[in-house]
Simulated scan of single mutants.
Amino acid sequence: MQLLIDEARTFPARAAAHGVNLGPHTTSATPQAMFIACSDAHVVPALLTSSRPGDLYELRTYGGTLPHPAEHEPTSEARTIEHAVDVLCVTDIIVCGHSRCGAIDALHPDSEAAPFQVAAGQWHTLMQFDALSEYPCVQARLIDRTLRLHAWYYDIDAGTTVRYDPRASAFLPL
């Protein structure tokens, strides 16, 4: 814990050394994209995308799992999506799955074959992508073409990311 405390204390100096301005204008910055990912500590959206403070609006859940929209009692995930879409007016939403995901392993505990795990992880990513596209606020923005959805899959071991291409019905290099 002490390491985390020490890093938090030195963050302003490190940010300044890298040209990151933490001044007042950054609080009003509007992110251009929302990044939905697993809460796994190996997945760091800002590092994957070289984003700076204010660039990404993140939603992290166990396995990157999104509930289907419900009319009554909206979930915190639903409210986060609605805020990104309706208030922040993001133009892109990335749903990003990853390799060696504990949530996927829990769903498919009998298979340890790497190709199966990748296929299961990519399938899970597409299921979350489909759930996201069911949200009324998302549908409205897709219809007026002011929002684009993307499905990515991050390979933790290789450090590479692929994207889903619906025309090819496959995950391809970015």
Rank of each mutant, 00 (worst) to 15 (best):
E7D: 15
T10W: 11
A15V: 08
A16W: 11
G19C: 05
V20R: 06
G23S: 14
G23M: 10
P24V: 14
T26Q: 13
T26R: 15
T27C: 07
Q32C: 04
A33S: 11
A37W: 01
C38N: 05
A41M: 08
A41D: 09
V44M: 04
P45E: 10
R52T: 11
P53R: 11
P53Y: 09
G54N: 03
G54F: 03
L56H: 11
E58Y: 03
L59V: 11
R60M: 15
Y62R: 12
G64F: 03
H68G: 08
A70L: 11
H72S: 14
S76D: 00
E77K: 02
R79D: 03
D86Y: 02
C89D: 09
V90Y: 01
T91D: 10
I93P: 00
I94Y: 13
I94V: 15
C96K: 02
H98D: 09
C101Q: 10
C101Y: 08
G102C: 14
G102A: 13
I104P: 00
I104A: 05
D105L: 13
H108S: 00
S111W: 07
P115S: 15
P115F: 13
Q117F: 10
G121M: 06
W123Y: 15
M127A: 13
Q128P: 05
F129S: 01
F129D: 01
L132N: 00
S133K: 09
S133D: 01
E134R: 12
C137V: 07
C137M: 10
V138T: 01
Q139H: 05
Q139K: 12
Q139E: 04
A140I: 02
A140L: 02
R141S: 06
R141H: 11
L142V: 01
I143A: 13
I143L: 12
T146L: 02
T146D: 08
T146F: 04
L149D: 06
L149H: 06
H150E: 01
A151Q: 03
